[in-house]
């Protein structure tokens, strides 16, 4: 009888890395070696490593034009209007470090290049629904938040993840409004953070993430309103205390902790039943959990007494 004895190095065919990703990485490594030879200044301009598209999260809509996504932005540190992209170019994205701290076994500080090289990058085309009733579809490049959390090993007592945006007064005019509770802070539960959709974004449209879109590192949970996505992150902290977010401190009635998309629950000043697509202007019905219910609805079982929709 022929007996197959499995060795630790025997891997199933399904574990094999796709060919395009392997050769893409080789090309990237060759490019990186060339840049190192050319000097640190050139290496700082390195582009986004290649990343395969994960087709598990099909958006069901056309991707929004890159120009729309990079010129119509909410980034309150630069202003309240949508044309902050020019002002945001003054924000230096290199060098950039991100601390992961708090209730973790192994707190760490990452350089952004370190994150780019060690995290499992992939592309995901996600819908984004703004609380202001507009929406877009963006091919983000990034990595699951769970991959980052696996490195720092959250303590069992950690219940929330808090994200803090950089405070750079020399380039962010909004910080002159000293009465606001800077830095911009957002958060989610540890269960939400561990959900497979929770994504740390480092790029879009195959390029490094632009400053106006929250470069070099932002967060995105596509089933929540966009303001929950902290941009230009410098600190990720695990804690047992539920954070009070920036907007929650200013207007809790309009911007709550959970902020899950729900077309049946209107904003105090407008309906959330429809959304206007950036670029086309088309008005389309908004979906519960922005259409991601199959991935996330279970997170909220037993939380009906919470204000889940604002």
């Amino acid at each position: 009888m022929h007996i197959l004895k499995s060795r630790p190095w025997n891997l199933p065919e399904s574990s094999a890395t796709p060919e395009a990703l392997v050769f893409g990485r080789r090309q990237a490594m060759a490019l990186g070696a060339g840049m190192l030879a050319a000097g640190p200044a050139l290496a700082q301009q390195a582009g986004l490593p290649p990343a395969m598209r994960n087709t598990r999260y099909a958006p069901g809509r056309a991707i929004t034009a890159e120009r729309e996504v990079t010129t119509y932005n909410n980034f309150y540190e630069f202003g309240s209007h949508k044309t902050i992209s020019a002002a945001a170019q003054r924000m230096p994205l290199r060098p950039w470090t991100v601390k992961v701290e708090g209730m973790v076994e192994a707190p760490r500080e990452y350089g952004i290049e370190d994150l780019l090289s060690r995290m499992p990058l992939e592309e995901r085309v996600y819908r984004l629904r703004c609380v202001e009733a507009w929406a877009m579809v963006v091919p983000w490049t990034g990595f699951p938040l769970s991959a980052l959390l696996a490195e720092v090993k959250p303590l069992s007592s950690a219940r929330y993840v808090v994200f803090q945006t950089a405070t750079l007064p020399s380039v962010m005019p909004g910080l002159r409004q000293s009465w606001y509770p800077w830095p911009y802070t957002e958060g989610c539960t540890i269960a939400e953070a561990g959900n497979e959709l929770s994504f740390m974004v480092v790029g879009a449209y195959g390029k490094l993430l632009s400053p106006q879109n929250g470069g070099p590192l932002r967060f995105h949970q596509p089933w929540k309103y966009g303001f929950k996505a902290g941009k230009s992150l410098v600190t990720i902290r695990l804690t047992d205390q539920r954070p009070v977010s920036f907007w929650e401190k200013i207007q809790a009635q309009e911007y709550g902790f959970w902020a899950n998309v729900n077309p049946a629950v209107p904003h105090p000043r407008w309906s959330q039943a429809q959304e206007r697509m950036l670029g086309t202007g088309e008005s389309v019905p908004t979906q519960l959990f922005n259409g991601y219910g199959e991935f996330v609805a279970d997170l909220y079982t037993g939380l009906q007494r919470e204000r889940l929709w604002a």
């Binding site: 202003g79 309240s80 209007h81 409004q177 000293s178 009465w179 606001y180 401190k249 200013i250 207007q251 309009e254």
Partner: peptide, 20 residues
């Protein structure tokens, strides 16, 4: 600004949004 924020935390945000 700090005084107005204490009186009504959402007032200046609304004013800024309308202005900008």
């Amino acid at each position: 600004g700090a005084l107005l924020f204490r009186l009504d935390p959402g007032l200046l945000n609304l004013l800024q949004a309308v202005t900008q």
